[in-house]
Design a protein around this nucleic acid. Structure first.
Lengths: 353, 353
DNA sequence: CTGTTAGCGCATTCAG
DNA sequence: CTGAATGCGCTAACAG
């Protein structure tokens, strides 16, 4: 590899000078234009690049933000979620001269520990991760208090109110819009279909409030799914359809359904399909996430997370924490919300009754 | 941060001893059990973690494999592809004590340059990337010869025969299986639907060979798509459906369609849907990629890449190249293939005629 | 059985 | 205007 010394030798000067020129401190140190020229051309010709590790060791910073996730989110349902996240995050950090280190852990219970290790090893200056990873961690460990750990950490969608900055989605008005959309189409009754294991109760509450405001009947139907988390998403959908089929009597007479997520909505659509009922003719259907809704037939009306923006918000906070240590104290405990948005597409139509 | 020196002080010994104990060389250097004990407990209590950068600087290796992609593959059509890839790759490299540095570039034409920089900066010991990134690069630059660059690089699905190791999918027998599946269902004619811009001509050839062997008529239909690469996948599908609709006369009388990819297949399905034709009743439809097929209704028969395995193969080669420099020469020019597999699902049925 | 020393590549202080 | 010397944290010769 080519080092500062090599460039210095080629330019007939010292490493100090080379370092200064290449870091743009040449002028303030009043280095002659001729020397600067010699240095830059030598560096260019040799294809010099500073050793990342030497630099990071000296500076005590890695100029890297870590994004922690686990295998679930990469290979399972969360692929689209993850991709959207990175989309917003990556361009943001690069503009500040930072890089994004994506770490995913195959062992589903060691993700956070892995992240902390990365931080202790100085591989990353700050970490971004998803709330559920922390929640999973906390189920078997003592909480990580920011003031004792000193770890610059940003959480996305954390249910548990940890003393870290948390960026989360607010879906109240999006759900209100969705309910309004159905009401405008003449629907007098809307079913909210969710898994028994679901934790995001706020969605349900918002749904009920919105229905009350519009004077439409709010029906809650929960379904239990055995053998979930299949590798083949189709299997999952088929499973959901099967479970939904068993409680079909609870669903049959209300032709508008809002589902906990797109995946569940597809399960409903399949179950309906198998019974000869079609969307949007017999049922109006609204998903949640916009991860599978775009490729559904008909294209599914859904509520979108605004993932890119969430990524950017989290990134902004992480960068600030990485840059100035004081910012860590300032940001911890802060809450940022991004507005979800209802996207009407082709799965909703006038009430058939 | 806590350094080797801190641990040494706490254990009442020197940094050398600490280093040896913590790296497991304690026994071979005959360090007393008592000292070893003291060191390990001290390290434990202080929460010591070696500085990644110091270590990498000393060793001249980063123990990191880089996976390069660009924004397209993260946020666009390739999310699933990417996720499947990582799924196989990540677990593999971690088992060898390596980490995965995922780099994606927002500037679509600088991805490879960015990767080379990462390598020169010693951030990664080897790189894995996708053929199309290299091809894009080569369109405006001189080729990267491995022997002059010395860069340990593994390519995935490269059309251009660069002198690097290339891992690619072989879809010959999968396509043959798909054609056989349709033939067994009584289809006498099959349309292969592909975009005019498509480059993967081998698929088309395999299709034609398989049809000839089965004595079914092979029809090739190409479609041109304006305004592609939309952000909203639904828009893309709608665009495709529109374009397909305009050449519908070429498609109407042959009730079996194999599409260039799942996305195209969905476009066809939508176009058919708009004309009152349904899958699999009026048309049997087979996709390619298994990226969108699992969540389609009906679940789409498709050809799957075997992405996890491709990731693992590429990872294995990259690790060998990273570990021993000789391996670079051995591996360059090598070709590895992974067999694609036809997955029958619900979008194919008996010929209606 | 253990410690001293040196050097990885860089940026920076201090001295010309 | 420039360079020599120092140290970031770690490991590996080389001494004891």
């Amino acid at each position: 590899m080519v080092t500062l010394g090599d460039v210095a030798a080629a330019a007939g000067t010292s490493t100090t000078t080379v370092s200064r020129v290449l870091n743009g401190c040449g002028d303030s140190h009043r280095i002659s234009a001729r020397t600067q020229q010699a240095v830059t051309t030598a560096a260019e010709e040799l294809g010099y690049r500073p050793s990342y590790h030497a630099r990071a060791l000296k500076a005590g910073r890695s100029n890297t933000i870590g994004l922690m996730c686990n295998a679930d989110i990469l290979s399972g349902h969360g692929q689209g979620y993850f991709g959207g996240m990175i989309d917003g995050l990556n361009s943001l950090v690069r503009k500040q001269g930072y890089n994004l280190l994506l770490t995913s852990d195959d062992d589903r219970h060691m993700t956070l520990e892995q992240g902390v290790i990365f931080w202790k090893e100085q591989r990353v200056d700050a970490l971004i991760t998803f709330g559920y990873i922390i929640e999973r961690y906390m189920a078997t460990n003592t909480p990580l208090a920011p003031d004792t750990v000193g770890l610059p950490l940003v959480l996305i969608e954390s249910q548990w109110p940890l003393e870290y900055p948390i960026v989360s989605m607010n879906c109240a008005s999006a759900i209100n819009d969705a309910v309004g959309h159905l009401a405008d189409l003449g629907h007098q009754c809307i079913t909210y279909l969710l898994p028994t294991s679901s934790q995001a109760d706020d969605r349900r509450s918002f749904f009920e409030i919105a229905c009350k405001a519009r004077k439409v009947e709010a029906r809650i139907v929960t379904v239990d799914f055995p053998n979930d988390r299949q590798h083949d998403r189709w299997e999952t959908i088929a499973n959901r359809a099967k479970a939904i089929d068993q409680i079909w009597s609870q669903l049959a007479d209300c032709p508008a359904v809002m589902a906990y997520n797109d995946h569940m909505a597809l399960g409903f659509q399949l179950a309906a399909h198998n019974r000869g009922c079609h969307v949007p003719h017999d049922f109006s259907l609204i998903g949640f996430d916009d991860l599978y809704a775009q490729t559904a037939l008909p294209p599914m009306s859904t509520i979108s997370h605004g993932l890119q923006e969430m990524g950017q918000r989290a990134g902004t906070i992480a960068l600030e924490m990485a840059t100035s240590p004081d910012a860590v104290k300032t940001w911890n405990n802060r809450r940022e919300t991004v507005e979800a948005v209802f996207i009407p597409r082709g799965s909703t139509g006038p009430c058939p009754h």
